[in-house]
Amino acid sequence: MHIRKYGQVRKTGMAVGAAAAVLAFSTACVAPGSETGPASTTAASQAAQGDDAQKRIAFFGFARANAFAVATWNGIEEYAKANNATAEFFDPNFDAQTQVQQIQDAVTSKRFDVFIVQANDGASVVPALRQAVAAGITVVAEFTPVGTAYDTADSQVPGVVTLVDVPTDNGKKLGELGVEACRSKNLDPCKVAYLEGMKSLPLDNARTEAAVKALEAADGVELVSRVEGGYTREGGRKAMQDVLQAQPDVNVVIGSSQAIAGAESVVKGKGVLLIGNGGSRQAVKAVQDGRWFATYYLPEKSAGAKAAELGLAKARGQQVEESNSETVLAPNDGKGTKEALAGVAGEYDE
């Protein structure tokens, strides 16, 4: 998305990755670490030195000003330092075409053994990643699916390892959490509003349709509103005001963690159960404090470390699973209820 979901999006192309973030996630932090890479060398020359030679990772994240991408980077950098590798963050600042050019330039430079790609636009990066694989570089697609299918963790580019959050799986779980919230209130019908991410994005539409399907399949649950809430507090606040004008007796509201944070100020004291899509420390605490019913939670710093682990293992000649879902890293398969998040702190700030 939980991109977000991710902060303010400046272009349609770049927004796909940002929204997938949920999913959502803010731009409050600035990443640590140097952007200056070590002296140039080739992947081939490193391979000739054997599997124990120091490896070099290039991380193509959403943006350095994005807290979610920063969490990913922190996990990558820490794992690299502990496992005889270096890492460098390439910052496209949410621009999909800039990211594609950075990947192509990194292939040409022959400086890196591993690419970890957090795609701003999963379709746009496909040709560049094919080029990287052909050049003998190990490629890991992290969080955002690479390709045009949003219902699978399977690799859509031959040779690319995935560690992704499947958008339709995310949406289905949000819908299921909505049903759980309704059951907790013992209402029939239970009225639910879904604050969509960005209707212009295919990835967001796939997530929305999966959530809607899960809600509509449940007896006694009525989806009364679908309004674009986006990935900002202001967007969520405005969307919630619109929902209440038409549905003043709504019982449950689902949206990105930022949109739900905005909606919270509008429904305070009305008994509305809130469900976020994002695993920031703030969202986790809102659930633990009982202000929100649940949030879809992924430990993103841990995911960054796992992506580095997969990439370095493959680059060193080890067998790794080609297709991987990030939800295996999360408690309760990502469904962050108060019980599931007991003792969890979250791994980034919004």
Results as ranks from 00 to 15, higher is better:
84 N>D: 13
246 A>W: 02
157 V>Q: 07
237 R>T: 02
44 A>L: 02
72 T>R: 00
63 A>L: 02
182 C>E: 14
266 V>C: 08
247 Q>T: 11
167 P>D: 13
20 A>S: 08
125 V>D: 12
244 L>H: 08
88 E>T: 14
243 V>Q: 07
310 L>I: 04
214 A>W: 04
69 A>N: 07
18 A>S: 11
287 V>G: 14
255 G>S: 11
175 G>M: 02
154 D>A: 09
84 N>T: 07
201 L>K: 00
165 D>T: 12
310 L>K: 00
230 G>V: 07
18 A>V: 12
8 Q>C: 06
147 G>P: 02
22 V>C: 07
127 P>R: 00
109 S>L: 11
77 E>V: 00
187 L>R: 01
328 V>W: 15
270 K>Y: 13
293 F>C: 04
256 S>G: 15
260 I>N: 13
67 A>H: 06
151 D>F: 05
60 F>N: 02
276 G>D: 14
41 T>I: 03
67 A>Y: 11
327 T>Y: 15
178 G>N: 10
322 E>S: 04
243 V>G: 14
7 G>D: 13
315 A>S: 14
346 G>K: 04
10 R>F: 15
76 I>Y: 06
107 V>Y: 15
134 A>H: 08
212 V>R: 03
109 S>V: 08
244 L>N: 07
38 P>S: 12
241 Q>S: 11
69 A>G: 12
81 K>R: 11
272 V>M: 08
254 I>K: 01
15 A>L: 03
350 E>T: 09
146 V>Q: 10
87 A>L: 05
237 R>L: 13
60 F>V: 01
268 K>V: 08
136 G>Y: 09
6 Y>E: 06
37 G>N: 06
31 A>H: 09
70 V>F: 05
257 S>P: 15
21 A>Q: 08
226 R>L: 14
92 P>E: 02
346 G>L: 05
253 V>S: 08
221 V>Y: 12
211 A>E: 12
82 A>S: 08
270 K>P: 14
16 V>T: 05
296 Y>C: 02
26 S>P: 15
86 T>L: 09
204 D>V: 00
155 S>E: 12
263 A>T: 01
135 A>N: 05
336 G>K: 05
319 Q>W: 04
317 G>M: 09
309 E>C: 03
82 A>D: 13
249 D>S: 10
235 G>C: 07
176 E>S: 03
112 F>G: 06
106 A>N: 12
285 K>G: 07
236 G>C: 09
122 G>M: 03
224 V>A: 15
148 T>M: 01
270 K>E: 15
314 K>M: 12
303 A>M: 09
111 R>Y: 12
14 M>T: 07
336 G>V: 10
279 G>L: 05
333 D>V: 04
146 V>W: 13
183 R>Q: 15
226 R>H: 09
73 W>R: 01
219 D>W: 01
117 V>A: 06
192 V>Q: 06
97 Q>I: 00
286 A>T: 01
101 Q>S: 15
308 A>Q: 10
152 T>F: 13
151 D>V: 00
300 E>T: 03
14 M>W: 09
334 G>H: 10
329 L>E: 15
299 P>K: 00
234 E>Q: 11
